[in-house]
Design a protein around this nucleic acid. Structure first.
Lengths: 195, 195
DNA sequence: CGTGTTTTATGATATATGTCAAGGCACAGC
DNA sequence: GCTGTGCCTTGACATATATCATAAAACACG
């Protein structure tokens, strides 16, 4: 059985509300544990993203492949994040993205329909969603501003400040792709930054 | 008296719920009409963004100024959008952004505290917020993907597809800044695109 | 261990985009 | 109808970043 405690902690911490025993049962009834091994795909381009998965353990990348065959990483996801292409998940349209496990993944997943019907009425959960929505708005704005105003080096420095653990956890070529850079450019950047 | 009908239409359309006469009164009691003339500032860097404003008429830009004195436009906003630096608005921290009217502006504005207490309990309003939150997530993801995967030309083409009216409404140098380009580069891009 | 695979580093070169400078065009206000 | 101001274009040149090729280093796994 997968670990629901991580999810309960997360919902309670973010919302500032406790979950009752009954409410926890609702979570257990509708979230399905799912495991993926490293390199397995959570979502493939062209498929509909039926589930969002709460990451109990592991990590993943969300990426596209362009006409030249180059991959571009839009998102890197770790524990306590929600894994999905939300465009596809909300609208049930085919996704333009691939989502692949970078480390063995343990998820608790649910469909949008089930979440709307059973989970969203739980006050702690909808409060959590509001907090996440605010955080996302702020993070998206910050990343976008960095993308249009900063040089490659500035964007890298911002990543170092905001997500230092990414540097330990993910290979440098993935970080480069996340920043919109070639691996060579990031390698040179780091050499120069050491002075 | 400013025009609340635009706001009511917007809330009702997005939420799919009607507003009662009483609920409309709550809106009238707490949203304050505000006018700004072209070039006036809605927010200055370093100030707290106390209000969010629903744009009844006009347009604005949200931008930063870097160390070299260059401006970078993060957002262009028109009718039926909400104007604010939401990081500062939610957290009441000093903003890193300036928001300036590009055309005469008519707003209906409200503080976060008032919105939370009086407006959010209105079902149509909170439903609208959920829809906006989803739309923002999708739009932010799309723009970010464009920023890391596309060339300057690709980003411009995407703007032409997604927001064609921006091209009529805003000068080309503002569009360039929004795309993270110099005005000269955009000018050349457009010349080549004509073939 | 050893061996194949992945990741990182480095050099040479190509390409995209920025910067600076100048001129022309358009429009607002007198 | 002038005139100033802001916007757009164009050219020459500078700089940042990508690409391609190769080798070294790190890692995974039988």
């Amino acid at each position: 059985m997968s670990n629901f405690e991580a999810l309960f902690d997360y919902v309670q911490t973010l919302s500032g509300k406790m979950l009752s025993a009954d409410e926890k049962q609702v979570f257990r009834a509708h979230f399905k544990p799912k495991k993926l091994r490293k390199r397995q795909y959570f979502l493939q381009e062209g498929d509909v993203c039926k589930y969002t998965g709460f990451i109990v353990k592991g990590s993943a990348r969300t990426f596209t492949v362009d006409e030249k065959g180059h991959e571009h990483i839009l998102k890197l996801s770790v524990e306590n994040w929600w894994l999905a292409d939300f465009e596809s998940y909300y609208q049930l349209t085919p996704s333009r993205f691939n989502i692949e496990a970078l480390e063995d993944l343990e998820l608790l997943q649910i469909t949008n329909a089930q979440a709307e019907e059973f989970i969203k009425p739980i006050p702690a959960f909808s409060a959590m969603q509001n907090v996440i929505s605010q955080n996302n708005t702020i993070a998206a704005q910050k990343r976008m501003q960095s993308a249009i105003s900063n040089s490659a080096e500035g964007r890298y420095q911002e990543l170092v400040n905001d997500y230092p653990h990414f540097l330990q956890r993910f290979p440098q070529n993935m970080i480069a792709s996340y920043l919109g850079l070639s691996p060579e450019t990031l390698s040179r950047l780091r050499k120069n930054a050491l002075k």
